[in-house]
């Protein structure tokens, strides 16, 4: 009996010791990963770059997207009643280019697009961040264009008719009446696109941008430890996404309230 008890005690002690050892190991790993040589600064810089990249890429994406959506919807609604043959020709060309753009960008992986832009189209540029912003912006623009187009089409046709019947032309009706209303409808979708883009930028490291993912990799390559850096990177993405999702929810509720 006593023998059994002693055995049990020593097993417990072993457990305790190894648990302690594990904790100690973690602590050491944590220290190596983030504290030594101020390596947490990599992570901080990475988060910063990820946010900057996402932000500017989305702005470029929205600008491109609105232009493409405007061309596509005016072609659909306006082309047949246009009279000026030169304007008609340019709209036709614009529409054709937009369609090719949408097809190519949405039909190829974003990774491939980035490599092409970085190593072929902008091979002479030294500014990696700029390349990445342009690559992700062009990619995002294709998705934003369809969001904006859906937003424009969601506005009741009567709004367009009311504007036109007052004598406003197509552009004026779009600008003053349709787009402000459409924008309100698409704001949540745009915010969602921001979240998707935030996660997608994790491949920017492949072309040398030190984003959050690459910051983690840099730490791994000096400490030869995978656990802590990867866990931290994943957690930070998760927290960012959860935070922005919460913001989008807030925004949606605000917009819905204004409708009444």
């Amino acid at each position: 009996m006593a023998e059994w008890f002693a055995g049990y005690c020593s097993w417990l002690c072993d457990c305790y010791a190894s648990f302690n050892g594990w904790l100690y190991g973690l602590q050491k790993e944590f220290t190596t990963a983030f504290i030594v040589d101020d390596r947490w600064k990599y992570i901080l810089k990475g988060v910063q770059n990820t946010l900057i990249l996402t932000f500017y890429a989305l702005i470029l994406g929205v600008v491109l997207g609105v232009i493409v959506a405007a061309i596509r919807t005016s072609y659909d609604k306006q082309y047949r009643e246009m009279k000026n043959p030169i304007a008609k020709f340019f709209l036709w060309i614009g529409n054709a280019i937009s369609k090719i753009y949408l097809t190519v960008i949405r039909g190829t992986p974003v990774m491939v697009q980035i490599l092409i832009i970085f190593f072929i189209i902008m091979a002479s540029s030294r500014d990696k961040m700029l390349c990445a912003v342009i690559a992700f912006g062009i990619n995002s623009g294709a998705y934003v264009a369809e969001i904006v187009r859906a937003g424009i089409m969601s506005i009741d046709a009567g709004q367009n008719e009311a504007g036109r019947s007052l004598g406003l032309n197509y552009m004026q009706t779009m600008w003053f009446i349709i787009l402000p209303q459409a924008f309100k409808n698409i704001l949540p979708s745009l915010a969602n696109e921001f979240i998707v883009l935030l996660k997608e930028t994790s491949i920017a490291g492949y072309v040398g941008v030190t984003d959050l993912t690459r910051a983690g990799n840099q730490i791994r390559s000096v400490t030869y430890q995978d656990f802590m850096p990867l866990l931290a990177v994943a957690l930070i993405y998760l927290v960012l996404v959860m935070f922005f999702t919460w913001l989008v929810g807030l925004l949606e509720r605000r917009l819905r309230k204004n409708e009444r």
């Binding site: 009741d156 709004q159 008719e161 009311a162 504007g163 007052l166 004598g167 402000p180 209303q181 309100k184």
Partner: peptide
């Protein structure tokens, strides 16, 4: 060749569903 926008200014239209601009 007529500019329809000019002529629409002279013709007011009232719709069944009002079509006021909600924004």
């Amino acid at each position: 060749n007529t500019n329809i926008n000019l002529h629409r200014r002279k013709v007011g239209m009232v719709f069944q569903h009002f079509n006021l601009f909600p924004n």
